[in-house]
Protein backbone atom coordinates (compact mmCIF):
# COMPACT_ATOMS: atom_id res chain seq x y z
CA UNK A 1 0.00 0.00 0.00
CA UNK A 2 1.97 3.00 -1.15
CA UNK A 3 0.73 6.39 -2.18
CA UNK A 4 2.95 7.64 -4.97
CA UNK A 5 1.29 11.02 -5.39
CA UNK A 6 1.21 12.34 -1.90
CA UNK A 7 4.26 10.54 -0.61
CA UNK A 8 6.50 12.09 -3.24
CA UNK A 9 5.52 15.55 -2.12
CA UNK A 10 6.31 14.91 1.49
CA UNK A 11 9.72 16.05 2.55
CA UNK A 12 12.16 13.37 3.47
CA UNK A 13 12.71 13.30 7.15
CA UNK A 14 14.45 10.84 9.33
CA UNK A 15 12.28 7.80 9.44
CA UNK A 16 12.01 5.87 12.61
CA UNK A 17 11.04 2.28 12.66
CA UNK A 18 7.49 1.81 13.75
CA UNK A 19 7.79 0.06 17.04
CA UNK A 20 5.18 -1.45 19.27
CA UNK A 21 1.66 -2.53 18.77
CA UNK A 22 -0.76 -0.60 16.66
CA UNK A 23 -3.24 0.91 19.10
CA UNK A 24 -6.00 1.40 16.57
CA UNK A 25 -7.38 0.24 13.29
CA UNK A 26 -5.91 3.28 11.58
CA UNK A 27 -2.35 2.26 12.24
CA UNK A 28 -0.50 1.53 9.05
CA UNK A 29 -0.16 -2.10 8.20
CA UNK A 30 3.23 -1.83 6.65
CA UNK A 31 6.85 -2.43 7.42
CA UNK A 32 9.09 0.52 8.27
CA UNK A 33 10.27 2.37 5.22
CA UNK A 34 13.88 2.45 4.26
CA UNK A 35 15.55 5.60 5.49
CA UNK A 36 16.26 7.05 2.08
CA UNK A 37 12.75 6.70 0.72
CA UNK A 38 9.99 9.27 1.20
CA UNK A 39 7.39 8.07 3.61
CA UNK A 40 3.93 7.11 2.44
CA UNK A 41 0.84 9.01 3.53
CA UNK A 42 0.14 6.44 6.20
CA UNK A 43 3.54 6.25 7.79
CA UNK A 44 3.78 10.01 7.65
CA UNK A 45 0.45 10.28 9.42
CA UNK A 46 1.61 7.71 11.96
CA UNK A 47 4.79 9.71 12.54
CA UNK A 48 2.66 12.78 13.14
CA UNK A 49 0.07 11.00 15.28
CA UNK A 50 2.49 9.59 17.82
CA UNK A 51 3.38 13.11 18.84
CA UNK A 52 -0.14 14.28 19.55
CA UNK A 53 -1.29 14.04 23.18
CA UNK A 54 -4.92 13.87 22.06
CA UNK A 55 -4.13 10.74 20.04
CA UNK A 56 -2.51 9.04 23.02
CA UNK A 57 -5.43 9.90 25.30
CA UNK A 58 -7.97 8.69 22.73
CA UNK A 59 -6.14 5.41 22.06
CA UNK A 60 -5.72 4.73 25.76
CA UNK A 61 -9.45 5.28 26.33
CA UNK A 62 -10.35 3.04 23.39
CA UNK A 63 -7.99 0.34 24.63
CA UNK A 64 -9.70 0.53 28.02
CA UNK A 65 -13.16 0.26 26.48
CA UNK A 66 -12.09 -2.68 24.33
CA UNK A 67 -10.72 -4.38 27.43
CA UNK A 68 -14.11 -3.86 29.10
CA UNK A 69 -15.81 -5.38 26.07
CA UNK A 70 -13.53 -8.41 25.94
CA UNK A 71 -12.98 -9.21 29.63
CA UNK A 72 -15.43 -7.34 31.85
CA UNK A 73 -14.53 -9.75 34.66
CA UNK A 74 -11.25 -7.88 35.05
CA UNK A 75 -13.06 -4.82 36.33
CA UNK A 76 -15.79 -6.23 38.49
CA UNK A 77 -16.57 -9.47 40.24
CA UNK A 78 -20.25 -8.65 40.78
CA UNK A 79 -22.86 -10.43 38.64
CA UNK A 80 -24.62 -7.82 36.46
CA UNK A 81 -27.77 -9.97 36.34
CA UNK A 82 -28.09 -10.55 40.09
CA UNK A 83 -30.85 -8.34 41.46
CA UNK A 84 -31.88 -7.78 45.06
CA UNK A 85 -34.92 -5.56 45.54
CA UNK A 86 -33.88 -4.79 49.11
CA UNK A 87 -31.14 -2.54 47.78
CA UNK A 88 -33.25 -0.86 45.10
CA UNK A 89 -32.08 2.65 44.13
CA UNK A 90 -29.41 2.76 46.84
CA UNK A 91 -26.90 5.55 46.34
CA UNK A 92 -23.23 4.86 45.55
CA UNK A 93 -21.26 3.48 48.49
CA UNK A 94 -18.01 1.65 49.17
CA UNK A 95 -19.77 -1.65 48.42
CA UNK A 96 -21.20 -0.57 45.12
CA UNK A 97 -19.30 2.33 43.62
CA UNK A 98 -22.10 3.37 41.33
CA UNK A 99 -24.99 2.39 43.62
CA UNK A 100 -27.90 0.13 42.67
CA UNK A 101 -30.69 0.50 40.13
CA UNK A 102 -34.45 0.05 40.60
CA UNK A 103 -34.27 -3.73 40.46
CA UNK A 104 -31.28 -3.72 42.80
CA UNK A 105 -28.69 -4.58 40.16
CA UNK A 106 -25.12 -3.52 40.86
CA UNK A 107 -24.73 -0.43 38.69
CA UNK A 108 -20.95 -0.57 38.41
CA UNK A 109 -20.98 -4.11 37.14
CA UNK A 110 -23.85 -3.36 34.75
CA UNK A 111 -22.17 -0.25 33.38
CA UNK A 112 -19.01 -2.25 32.63
CA UNK A 113 -20.88 -5.15 31.00
CA UNK A 114 -23.02 -2.71 29.00
CA UNK A 115 -20.02 -1.69 26.93
CA UNK A 116 -20.27 -4.98 25.07
CA UNK A 117 -23.67 -4.50 23.41
CA UNK A 118 -23.03 -0.84 22.68
CA UNK A 119 -19.63 -1.37 21.09
CA UNK A 120 -20.72 -4.42 19.08
CA UNK A 121 -23.68 -2.52 17.61
CA UNK A 122 -21.41 0.43 16.85
CA UNK A 123 -18.76 -1.72 15.18
CA UNK A 124 -21.20 -3.72 13.05
CA UNK A 125 -23.12 -0.61 12.01
CA UNK A 126 -19.88 1.09 10.99
CA UNK A 127 -18.79 -2.00 9.06
CA UNK A 128 -22.07 -2.22 7.12
CA UNK A 129 -22.24 1.52 6.50
CA UNK A 130 -18.70 1.71 5.19
CA UNK A 131 -19.03 -1.44 3.08
CA UNK A 132 -22.34 -0.46 1.48
CA UNK A 133 -21.62 3.26 1.20
CA UNK A 134 -18.04 2.67 0.13
CA UNK A 135 -18.96 0.18 -2.59
CA UNK A 136 -21.78 2.40 -3.86
CA UNK A 137 -19.61 5.51 -3.82
CA UNK A 138 -16.72 3.76 -5.53
CA UNK A 139 -18.91 2.38 -8.31
CA UNK A 140 -20.81 5.60 -8.88
CA UNK A 141 -17.62 7.68 -8.77
CA UNK A 142 -15.80 5.34 -11.14
CA UNK A 143 -18.49 4.84 -13.76
CA UNK A 144 -20.19 8.23 -13.53
CA UNK A 145 -22.94 9.06 -16.01
CA UNK A 146 -26.42 7.66 -15.68
CA UNK A 147 -25.47 5.04 -13.08
CA UNK A 148 -24.01 7.78 -10.90
CA UNK A 149 -27.09 9.97 -11.31
CA UNK A 150 -29.46 7.14 -10.38
CA UNK A 151 -27.42 6.00 -7.40
CA UNK A 152 -26.97 9.55 -6.14
CA UNK A 153 -30.72 10.13 -6.25
CA UNK A 154 -31.34 6.88 -4.36
CA UNK A 155 -28.84 8.03 -1.77
CA UNK A 156 -30.61 11.40 -1.59
CA UNK A 157 -33.87 9.62 -0.75
CA UNK A 158 -32.31 8.02 2.32
CA UNK A 159 -30.34 11.15 3.11
CA UNK A 160 -33.57 13.16 3.23
CA UNK A 161 -34.90 11.10 6.13
CA UNK A 162 -34.19 12.68 9.51
CA UNK A 163 -32.07 10.19 11.47
CA UNK A 164 -34.10 9.64 14.62
CA UNK A 165 -37.49 9.87 12.92
CA UNK A 166 -36.40 7.50 10.16
CA UNK A 167 -34.86 5.20 12.77
CA UNK A 168 -38.09 5.00 14.76
CA UNK A 169 -40.18 4.26 11.67
CA UNK A 170 -37.83 1.61 10.28
CA UNK A 171 -37.41 -0.04 13.66
CA UNK A 172 -41.13 -0.15 14.45
CA UNK A 173 -41.77 -1.62 11.01
CA UNK A 174 -39.17 -4.33 11.04
CA UNK A 175 -38.82 -5.49 14.60
CA UNK A 176 -40.72 -8.52 15.77
CA UNK A 177 -42.70 -8.51 19.00
CA UNK A 178 -40.30 -10.43 21.20
CA UNK A 179 -36.99 -10.46 19.39
CA UNK A 180 -33.96 -12.31 20.63
CA UNK A 181 -30.94 -10.18 21.37
CA UNK A 182 -29.21 -11.17 18.12
CA UNK A 183 -32.29 -10.31 16.06
CA UNK A 184 -32.74 -6.98 17.78
CA UNK A 185 -29.09 -6.14 17.25
CA UNK A 186 -29.24 -7.07 13.59
CA UNK A 187 -32.33 -4.94 12.99
CA UNK A 188 -30.74 -2.04 14.84
CA UNK A 189 -27.49 -2.36 12.91
CA UNK A 190 -29.42 -2.55 9.64
CA UNK A 191 -31.44 0.53 10.54
CA UNK A 192 -28.40 2.61 11.40
CA UNK A 193 -26.61 1.48 8.24
CA UNK A 194 -29.66 2.16 6.08
CA UNK A 195 -29.82 5.76 7.28
CA UNK A 196 -26.07 6.42 7.20
CA UNK A 197 -24.75 4.82 4.02
CA UNK A 198 -25.45 7.92 1.87
CA UNK A 199 -22.89 9.88 3.88
CA UNK A 200 -20.25 7.19 3.39
CA UNK A 201 -21.18 7.04 -0.27
CA UNK A 202 -20.77 10.78 -0.80
CA UNK A 203 -17.35 10.78 0.84
CA UNK A 204 -16.12 7.80 -1.15
CA UNK A 205 -17.64 9.08 -4.35
CA UNK A 206 -15.89 12.42 -4.22
CA UNK A 207 -12.61 10.71 -3.35
CA UNK A 208 -13.09 8.26 -6.22
CA UNK A 209 -13.77 11.07 -8.69
CA UNK A 210 -10.52 12.79 -7.71
CA UNK A 211 -8.49 9.59 -7.83
CA UNK A 212 -9.96 8.49 -11.16
CA UNK A 213 -8.25 11.35 -12.97
CA UNK A 214 -4.79 10.54 -11.60
CA UNK A 215 -2.07 9.42 -13.96
CA UNK A 216 -1.59 6.02 -12.36
CA UNK A 217 -5.19 5.11 -13.07
CA UNK A 218 -4.76 6.13 -16.70
CA UNK A 219 -1.52 4.15 -16.81
CA UNK A 220 -3.21 1.06 -15.41
CA UNK A 221 -5.97 1.38 -17.96
CA UNK A 222 -3.43 1.79 -20.78
CA UNK A 223 -1.76 -1.39 -19.61
CA UNK A 224 -5.07 -3.17 -20.03
CA UNK A 225 -6.21 -3.56 -16.44
CA UNK A 226 -9.87 -4.44 -16.01
CA UNK A 227 -12.32 -2.13 -14.24
CA UNK A 228 -12.40 -4.39 -11.23
CA UNK A 229 -8.64 -4.43 -10.94
CA UNK A 230 -8.39 -0.65 -11.26
CA UNK A 231 -11.00 -0.17 -8.56
CA UNK A 232 -9.57 -2.67 -6.11
CA UNK A 233 -5.84 -2.29 -6.65
CA UNK A 234 -5.46 1.36 -7.59
CA UNK A 235 -8.44 3.37 -6.46
CA UNK A 236 -9.39 1.69 -3.21
CA UNK A 237 -6.02 2.20 -1.45
CA UNK A 238 -6.05 5.84 -2.44
CA UNK A 239 -9.61 6.47 -1.29
CA UNK A 240 -9.01 4.80 2.03
CA UNK A 241 -7.92 7.85 4.02
CA UNK A 242 -11.21 9.82 4.01
CA UNK A 243 -13.15 6.58 4.56
CA UNK A 244 -11.03 5.73 7.59
CA UNK A 245 -11.59 9.13 9.13
CA UNK A 246 -15.31 8.87 8.51
CA UNK A 247 -15.44 5.35 9.93
CA UNK A 248 -13.72 6.34 13.16
CA UNK A 249 -16.00 9.28 13.81
CA UNK A 250 -19.05 7.29 12.69
CA UNK A 251 -18.20 4.50 15.13
CA UNK A 252 -18.48 6.98 17.97
CA UNK A 253 -21.64 8.48 16.53
CA UNK A 254 -23.26 5.06 16.08
CA UNK A 255 -22.59 4.07 19.68
CA UNK A 256 -24.44 7.28 20.56
CA UNK A 257 -27.20 6.41 18.07
CA UNK A 258 -27.67 2.96 19.60
CA UNK A 259 -28.04 4.60 22.99
CA UNK A 260 -30.51 7.18 21.68
CA UNK A 261 -32.71 4.58 20.00
CA UNK A 262 -32.54 2.23 22.99
CA UNK A 263 -33.36 5.17 25.21
CA UNK A 264 -36.49 5.74 23.13
CA UNK A 265 -37.39 2.13 23.86
CA UNK A 266 -37.09 0.79 20.33
CA UNK A 267 -33.42 -0.13 20.06
CA UNK A 268 -32.21 -3.09 22.04
CA UNK A 269 -34.94 -4.91 24.00
CA UNK A 270 -35.43 -4.26 27.72
CA UNK A 271 -33.35 -6.65 29.79
CA UNK A 272 -30.34 -6.24 27.54
CA UNK A 273 -27.46 -4.59 29.29
CA UNK A 274 -26.56 -1.57 27.20
CA UNK A 275 -25.97 2.05 28.10
CA UNK A 276 -29.02 3.22 26.21
CA UNK A 277 -31.29 0.68 27.92
CA UNK A 278 -29.85 1.66 31.30
CA UNK A 279 -30.56 5.33 30.63
CA UNK A 280 -34.05 4.39 29.50
CA UNK A 281 -34.54 2.54 32.82
CA UNK A 282 -33.22 5.56 34.70
CA UNK A 283 -35.31 8.24 33.06
CA UNK A 284 -38.33 7.86 35.31
CA UNK A 285 -36.26 8.12 38.47
CA UNK A 286 -33.90 10.98 37.70
CA UNK A 287 -35.19 12.94 40.64
CA UNK A 288 -34.69 10.29 43.31
CA UNK A 289 -31.82 8.33 41.80
CA UNK A 290 -29.79 10.51 39.45
CA UNK A 291 -26.84 8.11 39.82
CA UNK A 292 -28.77 5.64 37.67
CA UNK A 293 -28.51 8.13 34.82
CA UNK A 294 -25.15 9.76 35.43
CA UNK A 295 -22.85 6.73 35.34
CA UNK A 296 -24.01 5.05 32.13
CA UNK A 297 -24.27 8.48 30.52
CA UNK A 298 -20.70 9.29 31.54
CA UNK A 299 -19.36 6.00 30.18
CA UNK A 300 -21.32 6.45 26.98
CA UNK A 301 -20.09 10.00 26.47
CA UNK A 302 -16.48 9.08 27.22
CA UNK A 303 -16.53 6.22 24.73
CA UNK A 304 -18.07 8.35 22.01
CA UNK A 305 -15.60 11.11 22.85
CA UNK A 306 -12.65 8.72 22.50
CA UNK A 307 -13.67 7.72 18.97
CA UNK A 308 -14.55 11.25 17.87
CA UNK A 309 -11.21 12.47 19.25
CA UNK A 310 -9.34 9.71 17.45
CA UNK A 311 -11.13 10.51 14.19
CA UNK A 312 -10.33 14.17 14.61
CA UNK A 313 -6.59 13.68 15.13
CA UNK A 314 -6.38 11.10 12.36
CA UNK A 315 -8.07 13.55 10.03
CA UNK A 316 -5.56 16.22 10.96
CA UNK A 317 -2.68 13.81 10.51
CA UNK A 318 -3.88 12.60 7.12
CA UNK A 319 -4.61 16.05 5.74
CA UNK A 320 -1.33 17.67 4.77
CA UNK A 321 -3.04 21.06 4.60
CA UNK A 322 -3.83 21.03 8.29
CA UNK A 323 -0.32 20.26 9.46
Amino acid sequence: MSEPTIASQVEVRHVEAIVGESPSAEAPQQKPDKADKPRSLWSDAWYDLRRRPLFIVASALIALVLLMVLVPQLFTSADPYYADLARSKQLPSANAWFGYDVQGHDMFSRTIYASRASVIVGLLATLFTVLVGGAAGMISGFYGGLLDAVMSRIADVFFGLPFILGGIIILTTFRSDSPTLAEAMLVLVGTIAMLSWPVAMRITRSAAITVKQQDYVKAARALGASDGRIIVRHMLPNCLAPMMVYATIALGAFIGAEATLSYLGIGLPPGTISWGVMINDAKDYIRVAPHMLIFPAAFLTTTVLAFVMLGDVVRQALDPKLR
Partner: peptide, 17 residues
Amino acid sequence: LFLISLPVFVTGFVLQI
Protein backbone atom coordinates in the same frame (compact mmCIF):
# COMPACT_ATOMS: atom_id res chain seq x y z
CA LEU B 1 -15.24 17.56 20.91
CA PHE B 2 -16.95 16.93 24.22
CA LEU B 3 -20.17 18.59 23.04
CA ILE B 4 -20.08 16.56 19.83
CA SER B 5 -19.85 13.38 21.89
CA LEU B 6 -22.71 14.20 24.25
CA PRO B 7 -25.92 12.53 23.07
CA VAL B 8 -28.75 15.05 23.17
CA PHE B 9 -30.75 13.12 25.75
CA VAL B 10 -27.84 13.23 28.15
CA THR B 11 -27.52 16.99 27.71
CA GLY B 12 -31.27 17.36 28.18
CA PHE B 13 -31.42 15.27 31.33
CA VAL B 14 -28.36 16.91 32.86
CA LEU B 15 -29.81 20.38 32.23
CA GLN B 16 -33.11 19.21 33.68
CA ILE B 17 -31.54 17.68 36.81
